[in-house]
Design a protein around this nucleic acid. Structure first.
Lengths: 192, 192
DNA sequence: CCCCAAAACTAACACTTGTTTGTTTCAAAT
DNA sequence: ATTTGAAACAAACAAGTGTTAGTTTTGGGG
């Protein structure tokens, strides 16, 4: 059990992640959130500036984790195939380690208000470009078959980002195993 | 121009599809919807019983289209590979022909109220089983490599259901071309 | 013990939510 | 020209929205 005793702030955030995922950001009220935490709604504002602030913290924290996971991959791996496999593994691991939060990241980000929304989109685009870059270089070196780059990147991301749904329904598959299997399926499709 | 002159009912539905997709079901109010249609909110209730009724019609209509598209595939194709390719094509075509509605189908269905929600889940599960069945038989016949069935089905669905996002950003790719490319990528990964 | 700040509370504000009621408009059929 | 039913409307309801103001509780440091 990593959960010793949560601070109220941590408790609010964790509960928000759960509720936002279960019922959607717009459908969850501050009073409902507060009740689940065990406090009154106004008390939340001692810890977060606004509802949007809460969503912002959740989304941007996951974004940072994706970038961090990728950084290690980019430094340690050389060939396009190995980089891709490692990137997929890192990405899936972040999702696996933050199931609720990453579900919010993927499904509720559009409720961010400006300027957070614009910054979020920018970050996400940067991250996608990193993946696309690996694939592009792999194609040019002949490791991967030449195909529509945008479509391929999209397909891969879609598959990866559904990992969350997989966890819910699946007979216990480990994150590593899921990452391995998805990587296997997709890389075989990429290979020239 | 297929749009000769829409009935008010059709107008409401089409506008609802657009708004629900753009801003999410919970975030769209009846007054906002009405305004976009050019009427007052209470007038909507001359055409739909409730907000939920609107969502129900959108979601279940798309569901019916998926089933219809699959039916033809199942009758006309024989080998697992051909069936799979045709099923993917049919699925993507339904999305391509109903971009807004299918986006709502995939992202807003959880806002359905009971008993619609339960029925929707059941339908969706049935549809998934049809795909899984093709893959399963393909594996047993040796056309496809034996892998975790649930994971494979999930990965494929995830890729297919992101088609909508692809349309928005992509340099004009035809539905057929998208279906072809995705099918190519995924089937190669499946092949034994 | 007292103080002070962090964090909880109650009450309220201004506004929006989906929906209902009762009435009026309007176009097609008699 | 009159009837009729569909579809529009304005007004309102009860409940819920995020948030703020002002106050009380709480728990650790001097």
């Amino acid at each position: 059990m990593a959960t010793a005793t949560l601070t109220t702030r941590q408790n609010i955030r964790q509960t928000a992640q759960k509720l936002f995922r279960e019922r959607g950001y717009a459908a969850v009220g501050m009073r409902e959130l507060a009740k689940e935490v065990g406090i009154e709604a106004p008390s939340i504002y001692n810890h977060y500036k606004s509802k949007d602030d809460l969503l912002r913290e959740i989304c941007f924290d996951i974004a940072a984790q994706f970038f961090k996971a990728f950084e290690e991959v980019d430094l340690n791996e050389k060939s396009a195939t190995k980089k891709m496999r490692a990137a997929i593994k890192g990405h899936v691991s972040v999702i696996a380690d933050n199931m609720e939060a990453s579900a919010v990241f993927f499904q509720e980000w559009m409720f961010l208000e400006e300027p957070n929304l614009a910054q979020f989109k920018k970050l996400r685009h940067e991250y996608e470009l990193k993946f696309r870059d690996i694939i592009d270089k792999g194609m040019k070196k002949g490791d991967f078959k030449t195909m529509n780059l945008k479509l391929v990147t999209f397909t891969i991301f879609s598959a990866l980002n559904a990992t969350y749904d997989l966890y819910k329904t699946s007979e216990k598959l480990s994150p590593d195993q899921i990452a391995e299997d998805i990587a296997g399926l997709l890389l075989k499709g990429l290979k020239s």
